[in-house]
Amino acid sequence: MNLFTTKRRRGATVLGGAILGLGLVASLATPALACDTKVKADSKCGTDGGWTASFKVANDFNPDATVSSVKVDGVEAQGGVGEIVVGTTAKANYGNWLTGTLDEKASTDTVKLTVELTWERKGKHGRTTVVTDSSDATANKPETECTTTPTTAPTTTPTTAPTTAPTTAPTTEPTTVPTTATPTTEPSTPDVPLPTPSESTEPVLPDEIFAVDCDSMTIGLDNTKGEIEYKLHFTPSSGAAKDLDIKAGEKKSVTFDAEEGFTVKLSIVAVFKGVTSEPETATIPYETPADCGGEGGGGSLPVTGAAAGGIAGGAAVLLAVGAGLFFMARRRKVRFTA
């Protein structure tokens, strides 16, 4: 057995394995170490007192790269910044610089742009290696205040406009407008008399129904020829209250048991052509007829003398209330138009 030959073969095997392993590590590590994204930033004053941030992005690796992410102050910019847009190609070895600008307000001090590039490289055996790298740059607000536009605008505009406008417009308009038709015609319109309502015919009022005897009192309306609907509510001093609804063409009355001191409070509402009046009230006292002093007592006796005056007074109250309600309803229906 040749030991020298065996030792040489073992050493060659170990050396070859080491070289192969180092080559594999180098082939895998090289894309990650060599790929680099370059981002530069600059700034200058704007035209409105603010400032403008300028950015440049390039690829310093050999294969072309694609922009895969654009963020402004850590937030993904959907529309990108100028030419720096997701999907744009950054050519290899600084083949092109992608540029973009951002307009900032005077209150903003800094703005940071972060850009990620992606490389794809195919190996000898058809395997595709994808490598990404991101870098950022911050643009700072210019040290000098950007006051170019504010210093010029106030000196030009206010000096010309105020001097011309007040001298022309106020001198012409006030002299013509007050002397024309507007103030002189409108005050004369209230002097024109308004038309007054008139009615050639008036509805027929009902006849009263009012009668008393020695132990009762009857109250009602004969509205057979009338045109107004009357709603009567009776509240007697003793006994239950009663209601009468007397429409046009009807005759109704109600009778109460009565004695000396008995009274009936009557409330009347008139309804005429869809208009309902406010209620009117009257209190009608019972007066015992003079002929009720006979021994027979009770029954119906002729009403004469002083009793007739009481009856007439109650009837007059009833009819006056009904007439007043009618005229009130008629006035509420009238509308004045100019």
Results as ranks from 00 to 15, higher is better:
residue 269 V to N: 10
residue 105 K to M: 00
residue 84 I to S: 00
residue 113 L to H: 00
residue 239 G to A: 12
residue 178 P to D: 09
residue 100 G to S: 04
residue 179 T to M: 06
residue 263 T to M: 04
residue 314 G to C: 04
residue 95 G to I: 00
residue 18 A to E: 01
residue 208 E to I: 08
residue 170 P to Q: 14
residue 234 F to C: 00
residue 60 D to P: 01
residue 145 E to C: 09
residue 28 L to K: 11
residue 263 T to G: 07
residue 305 G to I: 13
residue 292 C to K: 09
residue 284 I to G: 11
residue 11 G to V: 06
residue 13 T to M: 15
residue 193 P to F: 02
residue 96 N to S: 08
residue 322 G to P: 10
residue 37 T to H: 02
residue 169 A to N: 15
residue 276 T to I: 15
residue 309 G to I: 10
residue 135 S to V: 02
residue 219 I to F: 07
residue 292 C to H: 06
residue 267 S to Q: 15
residue 316 A to F: 09
residue 45 C to T: 03
residue 146 C to A: 15
residue 322 G to E: 03
residue 72 V to G: 03
residue 334 V to P: 04
residue 112 K to S: 01
residue 196 T to E: 02
residue 211 A to K: 08
residue 212 V to R: 06
residue 305 G to T: 14
residue 21 G to D: 06
residue 229 E to G: 10
residue 92 A to R: 06
residue 230 Y to F: 10
residue 304 T to K: 01
residue 20 L to T: 04
residue 39 V to R: 14
residue 25 V to N: 05
residue 275 V to A: 15
residue 186 E to H: 05
residue 108 T to G: 06
residue 151 T to A: 13
residue 30 T to K: 06
residue 226 G to Q: 09
residue 174 P to A: 05
residue 69 S to C: 11
residue 16 G to Q: 02
residue 216 S to E: 12
residue 249 G to R: 13
residue 310 G to C: 02
residue 282 A to N: 11
residue 187 P to E: 08
residue 156 T to C: 02
residue 324 G to V: 09
residue 127 R to N: 00
residue 36 D to I: 07
residue 335 R to L: 13
residue 19 I to L: 13
residue 206 P to C: 07
residue 255 T to Q: 06
residue 115 V to R: 00
residue 32 A to I: 07
residue 65 A to R: 00
residue 304 T to D: 03
residue 173 E to D: 13
residue 118 T to M: 00
residue 205 L to S: 14
residue 1 M to K: 15
residue 328 M to H: 08
residue 144 T to N: 11
residue 329 A to T: 12
residue 301 L to S: 08
residue 161 A to M: 09
residue 28 L to Q: 07
residue 275 V to F: 15
residue 70 V to F: 02
residue 263 T to V: 00
residue 18 A to G: 01
residue 119 W to M: 01
residue 36 D to Q: 10
residue 261 G to R: 10
residue 226 G to E: 07
residue 180 T to S: 03
residue 265 K to R: 07
residue 2 N to C: 12
residue 235 T to S: 13
residue 310 G to I: 02
residue 168 T to I: 15
residue 218 T to E: 08
residue 278 E to G: 13
residue 4 F to G: 10
residue 263 T to L: 05
residue 20 L to Q: 04
residue 205 L to E: 04
residue 128 T to G: 11
residue 157 T to Y: 06
residue 54 S to G: 00
residue 86 V to S: 05
residue 8 R to F: 05
residue 4 F to T: 02
residue 295 E to C: 03
residue 335 R to V: 15
residue 121 R to C: 02
residue 291 D to Y: 05
residue 95 G to K: 02
residue 117 L to K: 01
residue 85 V to M: 03
residue 185 T to K: 07
residue 267 S to C: 12
residue 151 T to K: 15
residue 59 N to M: 07
residue 266 L to C: 12
residue 151 T to N: 14
residue 73 D to P: 03
residue 78 Q to K: 12
residue 65 A to F: 02
residue 330 R to S: 05
residue 133 D to K: 05
residue 46 G to P: 11
residue 261 G to K: 11
residue 66 T to R: 15
residue 137 A to S: 15
residue 28 L to M: 04
residue 49 G to N: 09
residue 113 L to N: 00
residue 28 L to V: 08
residue 143 E to Q: 03
residue 261 G to S: 13
residue 282 A to F: 10
residue 88 T to N: 03
